[in-house]
Design a protein around this nucleic acid. Structure first.
Lengths: 190, 190
DNA sequence: AGTTCCATGTAATGTGTTACATGATTGG
DNA sequence: CCAATCATGTAACACATTACATGGAACT
């Protein structure tokens, strides 16, 4: 997900926020898996308004500098829905889960049905990652030894240990997603 | 860790590799937590040789295009050791663990003592992350409701569920690091 | 005959960080 | 009085991706 779309999503959840406020929200709420600096926020907000996805209003605060507060437009909402409805096809990477969490975070407005679909899609993607990690665990050991290199045994032992973590981690992720999916209706009312 | 230093580390583990071969190694071995494209590799290798950290030799292969094979120099080894010995101070972020895995992967040449020190340092860092995540779980719920915004309850439920995952995940990571540290001597001989 | 692999690189573009620039208000 | 917070923005730099460019060998 592009930062621009994330900002749009945050504005959808927090209408009437300024650039400065957006950063505060990011720092306190999504900071662990998504961060952005002010010098990136301001140009992106300008672009969003140029694209007609948001509008802004200048607030003249007494004794303070003017503040621009942004609101998502109908076009913005349509665009956001489109982006969040795109198929979730994460590349084979540790940070794929970061994208998943970020996207899920912005989907609060979606109904449980759509949320469930997204979770199912994500679980499928990570199951595929798991299969690949397991395959690589088998043949990369062989492969590595043929490539040669210093400290082969040590490196291989390290790599295998890391790989065992990564597969267990993927299993955890998949389990979490599936459990969340089952708990959706009881935890997120209606 | 900068990509340039990662390449240096990979050349240390795989002496006599070419740019193309480096990519193959990255794809098959570190791909899940570190990836790099060829158009980034070639300029970086040139820089490394300009810095005197690696040397290269041109191999004239019959019927094939020349191949440049790179070898780390003494200066390169010194630099690598320096970089890998720097204190591990990851920022509060989901991808901090990626940096940890990457660095650990390149430390195969270090002895168990140094490895153990690094693992301890990393565990401490992630324990700090865990404390912070737990604190935020408590007061971000409050804070969020004051910020206002649409679909508050839904968003909050989502956020809390994600936060529970993140803290459990950090606990897993810390446990894995500590277990690995205990198993070091039995698993990575001498 | 066409695609993939080997092998090297440059150019253009996109994205993100750090530094710079300004200025009032609030709290210690 | 000094630091932090609020508030907006630009400029320079660093880093990464995608597209472009070339060409032989091997496989299908």
């Amino acid at each position: 997900m592009r930062s621009k779309d994330v900002l749009l999503g945050l504005l959808s959840l927090h209408p009437g926020a300024s650039g400065y406020q957006i950063r505060k929200i990011v720092d306190s709420v999504t900071g662990f898996f998504f961060s952005i600096s002010l010098s990136q926020i301001y140009p992106l907000l300008r672009e969003l308004s140029e694209d007609g996805l948001v509008t802004y209003e200048v607030q003249n605060l007494v004794g303070k500098q003017d503040r621009k507060v942004y609101t998502i437009t109908a076009a913005g909402r349509a665009h956001l829905t489109e982006v969040l409805s795109e198929p979730f096809e994460p590349e084979y990477s540790l940070i794929a889960f970061r994208d998943f969490l970020l996207r899920l975070n912005l989907m609060a407005e979606f109904d449980n049905n759509k949320l469930s679909g997204f979770l199912e899609e994500a679980a499928a993607a990570f199951r595929q990652h798991l299969r690949r990690a397991q395959e690589e665990a088998v043949d990369a050991s062989r492969e590595y030894l043929t490539l040669g290199g210093r400290d082969q045994q040590r490196y291989l032992a390290l790599w295998q240990r890391e790989n065992r973590y990564l597969t267990a981690d993927l299993e955890n992720k998949i389990r979490w997603i599936e459990e969340f999916r089952l708990d959706l209706d009881s935890e997120l009312g209606e």
